[in-house]
């Protein structure tokens, strides 16, 4: 044996598997020539390897099953991909149908009280409606002080509130709808002062008209309901309006229309 690294078990395997450098191969060869045990070991490794190979050869030679054809696997993959694409497309279609349905339904529903065409729908009016509802609940229940200034001082009431809202307003006359004015009050609202007029129908039912100074376009009537209390709100001619009562929707709409007509009339008067 020549010098260098002593022969190890790894060398014997490397020799069997022919993974050694030519020099090392030669070194191992020289070693096993003089070491019968190592030679026997190498021989057995080799036999073992060959036996294992031939034991599995039949599997290697077998025709490849159709299901393992790459082209078939690729096609299946594309098919699945298309199918899932189809599903996504279907989902998109349903979404579109839903959106269209929602849009149409919205058009239909908001068109129900189509007193006039809404010029703007971006109204903070819903907030106004909520404040009007709250104000109604607080003061309509008030027995001794339902109003701040009563109907006997109607002129003062109108002037005062017009001043505070910084624009001329007029108290709607709702006698045709069966409501008699009780008076009104000034209220704080989120966007500034608000005016509330209170009416009574003679049976104890109370109706309030709530006004805030609102610049911006007109809106159509919108209905709001909270429990038994309902009403319409809209925006017109520099005011946000809400009319509320425990009454049915049709009566409330008639009242709202009456208010709208009257306030429309006031416009030329405003320069008085």
């Amino acid at each position: 044996m020549t010098g260098g690294m002593p022969i190890g078990d790894d060398d014997l395997h490397g020799y069997v598997d022919q993974r050694l450098t030519p020099e090392r191969m030669a070194a191992v060869e020289a070693y096993i020539a003089t070491h019968p045990d190592a030679a026997a070991q190498v021989l057995q490794y080799r036999e073992q390897r060959d036996a294992l190979r031939s034991a599995l050869q039949h599997k290697y030679d077998e025709p490849v099953p159709v299901r393992l054809r790459v082209a078939g696997i690729q096609a299946e993959r594309r098919r699945r991909w298309r199918r899932s694409l189809g599903r996504v497309a279907a989902a998109g279609l349903w979404l579109l149908i839903g959106a269209a349905g929602g849009w149409i339904a919205n058009e239909e529903l908001t068109a129900t009280p189509p007193v006039r065409v809404a010029a703007s729908s971006a109204l903070p009016a819903n907030a106004v409606a909520q404040e009007a509802l709250t104000a109604h609940r607080i003061f309509a229940a008030e027995v001794r002080h339902p109003v701040e200034v009563d109907v006997t001082q109607e002129k003062h009431l109108v002037e005062w509130l017009s001043k505070r809202l910084a624009r001329p307003l007029r108290v709607p006359d709702l006698s045709a709808q069966g409501y008699r004015l009780m008076g009104g009050r000034l209220l704080p609202a989120s966007a500034g002062p608000a005016a509330q007029f209170m009416y009574d129908d003679g049976t104890g039912r109370r109706l309030t008209v709530y006004l805030t100074a609102e610049d911006g376009g007109e809106t159509s009537f919108r209905y709001v309901q909270d429990g038994e209390l309902g009403g319409f709100y809209w925006r017109d001619a520099g005011f946000g309006y809400a009319v509320l009562a425990q009454a049915d929707r049709r009566d409330l709409l008639a009242t709202a229309e009456a208010i709208y007509r009257q306030t429309d009339d006031t416009v030329p008067v405003s320069g008085r």
Partner: peptide, 21 residues
């Protein structure tokens, strides 16, 4: 046969043999 298949197919018998073993 496309490129992917051409590169994979030749190894299938060996893969089957290994898996079977």
């Amino acid at each position: 046969m496309n490129e992917t298949a051409a590169l994979i197919e030749p190894h299938i018998p060996a893969l089957r043999r290994y898996a079977f073993a």
